[in-house]
Design a protein around this nucleic acid. Structure first.
Length: 862
RNA sequence: GCGGGUGUGGCGGAAUUGGUAGACGCGCCAGAUUUAGGUUCUGGUAUCGAGAGAUGUGGAAGUUCGAGUCUUCUCACCCGUACCA
């Protein structure tokens, strides 16, 4: 037999696809229905890894399947190319971020092409292309003009050594992840996108996303954190300078009669006003600022506070007064930065009350509990129940009393219903070079523009990154800031001296609209005078199927949902729902065993033979199965797999066995299995020498030939539903079964040709090169990549006879074969006559016989 | 703590309206062919039992003629999140 030679076959068909130009959306018949398949575009680190292979292989199955079904498919590829690693490389190796990035892109494009994905490369771009960030700046200006961008002072994590702002994720135990320096909190002018303007829409829009994983929807809902409650004001018992009360927010206004104190954040304006004259508050503020914000620190942190000496009146009974505390568990960033404490029904408040000997008055009685038996000790009761100790609310159920309490406050003019969000506006200023410059000019005349901030007129865009910047490892900071001339400009408004904003945009902005630019191509290219063609983009969007890692469940996917709404409201995009991705799939990771030697060092699998490390002979221990990562040395390089086994084998492997949403473990034996399968398919086709048309239909077949046809059509049905349901592993196993069936069927006749034709077309989305080679060998017309998807013939799916299991008391004892439409009586008669059934029943009495036509027969005896 | 998810052979996993549990692949066992080297082919492979048979989907209970699937409780692991008022 002849071995399938992937190394020779794969480039041949890739060239054929290129020559026929079959994956370019603009070349496809515009009258066909359109389908937009997209995988999250890669960061050009320089190397593709197995995670990429799996991600793009999944998208490719969808794209090729839809192509075969007659859709006009857009399946583009590009590069998420701005970001820190390029600047780190610049500092460490003295290279320019731009050169480093474009070299990496070239290094990654080649293996992606070798994998044979059905990608439309005509729309390729990198987010660091001037043409791209020029349009991103235009979007920024449009957002600015539509009130979606503003500037404010904000607290940031400032690294005094690297001289930059760090994201929260980059602060580890209060120290900078790179410099190790103690991080300071600074107030800096920062640009913000007004994502909170869409908080409600972003929240409720999630409910319409039926083809999103529940998990992601839940995570986004939690992130947006919508809550409904009451905001009202406590009045002081004695006047306080320049404050006429304390605004608090609560979701439990029903527990107002259980209130025993009011607590404010240490940085609440009222506390700040009191602090200069109060040593206790000064110490307290220092302690609060020091307190870590790691999960562990918060867990352990004791509920602490300082009595301010101020007292407020109970809003519904001014004879009751409550003490006012500064407390470390109240956050200025949420609600009003002030709360009332109801210790009986909130654990945090209870801990605090016990510490400072404040009263605990229960006001919610759990259903079925007697008042005299209900005691709050060290556990607050947060469950449902009936109000008591609450005057006008007594006897109400918690669920109705919340609304009643809000109404009471509103009627008395004391407060109002209020919706709160956890979501904050998106700070986009980064003190970095390798990003899109924020297109703002600060005029020396602060009456110009908005406080001197003037957006760069669209005609003056792009604000291009200067090439001549210096990266000094000892002087990190922002090279744009250090550039001798770049920031010096004249105000576009009034011509007075001005300076450029030297901050660049958060790179999450880059990935928030790239899918629209892909979709908004015109003719052969992407427009240079606008972000995207409105008509084209509106036609393709939303993306029909988006695929990527679950690590983007919140930030990227939320920012993109914000951007499409902003683009819509700026009139740039016609997308009423505002939703960029109609279907989302989050795929699992590619994992691999890890290995350690006697020193406890990670060992590369290549360096292991017979349980010993080749380079030094040390014994190897097999560790946990983990995500492939350089640090754990458990990475398998896709290039080596492609070179050794071929792209098809790599693709087939990452899609078989594990369900797509779960992790798949890369194993050598699994790869060999995939490789053997590819060879089996090729052998079957290769021995078919008389070139029967793979599109043929063996309509006259009977006997074994008919059985094979029926089976092939059944498998076609299963493979199709597997792909539709994102269960590629089940499609793969169905394909295996068909392969086994064809191999057992020895006759080289029309039925076999038909079954092979179905098989080849079904493996096309998974192993397109092998499929083309087989198709060509069989004498199929044109390219199988554009051949029609096999549709099961309903006549062949229908079975005339069925085998029914016969149970006695729920245990399977025998089986009978009956006509599909046999009536209950005849089924029962046949079952009762079965020898094994008779033996099982013995001398027991038959109580009941259940016949489920086409399914099962169960005989109940006793 | 809260939210979400997952638990099925030696392993990855099938079983999508409650109806033959273990498809398919890997591994393993036996045989055949070939033989130097990622062969190929045939058969077998949940567990206990010689056998008939019994048991079996993390555990316990329940609903049902019938439960991997539904209900309640419970255990383990994974992911997300964190003083959100």
């Amino acid at each position: 037999m002849s071995r399938y030679n992937a190394a020779a076959v794969e480039p041949k068909w890739q060239a054929a696809w290129d020559a026929a130009d079959i994956y370019t959306a603009s070349k496809m018949d515009a009258s066909k229905p359109s389908y937009y398949a997209l995988e999250m575009f890669p960061y050009p680190s320089g190397k593709i890894h197995m995670g990429h292979v799996r991600n793009y292989a999944m998208g490719d199955v969808i794209a090729r399947y839809k192509l075969a079904q007659g859709y006009r498919v857009l399946h583009p590829m590009g590069w998420d190319a701005f970001g820190m690693p390029a600047e780190n490389a610049a500092m460490e190796h003295g290279v320019h971020p731009k050169g480093w990035t474009y070299e990496n892109i070239d290094a990654m494009r080649a293996p992606l092409k070798r994998l044979g994905f059905a990608l439309d490369w005509s729309r390729e771009f990198a987010t660091c292309d001037v043409a791209y960030y020029k349009q991103q700046q235009a979007i920024f200006v449009a957002f600015f003009e539509n009130g979606l961008v503003y500037r404010k002072k904000a607290k940031v994590n400032w690294d005094p050594v690297d001289m930059t702002v760090l994201a929260n994720e980059q602060v580890i135990d209060g120290k900078g992840w790179r410099s190790g320096a103690e991080i300071e909190t600074r107030e800096l002018d920062q640009w913000f996108f007004k994502i909170t303007q869409y908080a409600d829409e972003l929240y409720y829009g999630l409910d319409a996303l039926e083809r999103w994983p529940d998990k992601v929807v839940t995570m986004q809902k939690n992130w947006i954190g919508r809550s409904e409650g009451l905001q009202f004001k406590f009045s002081f018992t004695k006047p306080v300078d320049s404050f006429d009360g304390i605004e608090v927010y609560t979701t439990r206004p029903d527990t107002i009669y259980g209130a025993s104190f009011v607590a404010l954040a240490y940085d609440h304006p009222l506390i700040k006003a009191l602090t200069p004259d109060n040593a206790d508050l000064q110490n307290f503020a220092k302690a609060c600022e020091k307190m870590g914000n790691t999960a562990e620190a918060i867990e352990k942190a004791e509920k602490l506070g300082v009595d301010t000496g101020l007292r407020v009146q109970h809003p519904l009974d001014d004879s009751i007064t409550l003490p006012v505390y500064a407390a470390n568990f109240v956050l200025m960033g949420y609600g009003t930065g002030a709360v009332f404490g109801c210790p009986a029904h909130d654990q945090r408040d209870l801990d605090f009350a016990r510490k400072y000997n404040l009263s605990v008055t229960p006001v919610v009685l759990p259903t079925g509990t007697k008042e005299e038996n209900f005691l709050i000790e060290n556990e607050a009761y947060t469950g449902p129940g009936t109000l008591f100790n609450s005057r006008e609310f007594n006897g109400m159920d918690v669920s109705q009393s919340i609304g009643a309490a809000i109404e009471t406050f509103e009627n008395l003019g004391l407060g109002a219903r209020q919706v709160q969000y956890r979501l904050r506006d998106w700070g986009v200023s980064r003190q970095r070079y390798w990003g899109a410059p924020i297109p703002i000019i600060y005029c020396e005349d602060t009456s110009c523009g908005e406080g001197g901030a003037v957006p760069v007129p669209v005609k003056d865009l792009p604000v291009e990154l200067p090439a001549d910047v210096v990266f000094e490892p000892d002087n990190p900071g922002n090279p744009l800031e250090r550039h001798p001339t770049w920031k010096n400009v004249n105000c576009p408004n009034c011509g007075k001296p001005a300076r450029r904003e030297t901050d660049t945009l958060d790179t999450f902005a880059d990935s928030s609209w790239y899918f629209a630019r892909f979709a908004g191509g015109q003719g052969d290219g992407l427009p240079d005078d606008k972000p995207f063609d409105k008509e084209q983009a509106s036609k393709w969007l939303p993306v029909d199927q988006y695929i990527g890692g679950v690590e983007h469940a919140v930030l990227h996917l939320l920012y993109a949902r914000f951007f499409t709404r902003g683009l819509r409201d700026c009139g740039l995009l016609d997308l009423p729902s505002g939703e960029p991705f109609a279907g989302l799939f989050t795929q699992g990771m590619v994992t691999h065993e890890t290995y350690k030697n006697e020193n406890g060092d990670w060992v590369n699998p290549d360096d292991i033979a017979d349980g010993k490390q080749i380079s030094n002979g040390q014994a190897i221990t097999v560790g946990a199965i983990e995500k492939m990562s350089k640090s754990k040395k458990n990475v398998v390089d896709p290039n080596e797999i492609i070179a050794g086994y071929g792209a098809d084998v790599a693709r087939w492997f990452v899609l078989s066995d594990s369900p797509p949403e779960r992790d798949v473990e890369w194993t050598e034996s699994g790869v060999i299995g995939a490789w053997r399968f590819a060879n089996k398919v090729w052998d079957m086709v290769a021995e078919t020498s008389d070139h029967q048309n793979p599109m043929s239909v063996a309509s006259g077949a009977d006997g074994d030939a008919l059985a094979l046809r029926k089976f092939a059509h059944k498998v076609a049905e299963r493979v199709t539903t597997g792909i539709e349901g994102f269960r590629f592993n089940t499609s793969v196993s169905a394909i295996y079964e068909l392969t086994n069936a064809i191999r057992k069927y020895k006759t080289n006749d029309a039925a076999r040709a038909e079954a092979l034709g179905i098989l080849i077309r079904m493996i096309t989305p998974f192993m397109p090169h092998l499929a083309e080679e087989c198709w060509s060998h069989m004498g199929g017309d044109g390219l199988v990549s554009v051949a029609a998807w096999p549709v099961a013939d309903p006549d062949l799916l229908r079975e005339d006879n069925v085998t029914l299991p016969v149970q006695v008391n729920g245990k399977r004892r025998s089986e009978i074969t009956v006509a599909k439409n046999a009536d209950k009586q005849s089924c029962e008669a046949l079952a009762m006559a079965d020898e094994k059934v008779i033996a099982s029943i013995g001398d027991k009495a038959v109580r009941k016989v259940i016949v489920v036509p086409g399914r099962i027969i169960n005989i109940v005896v006793s």
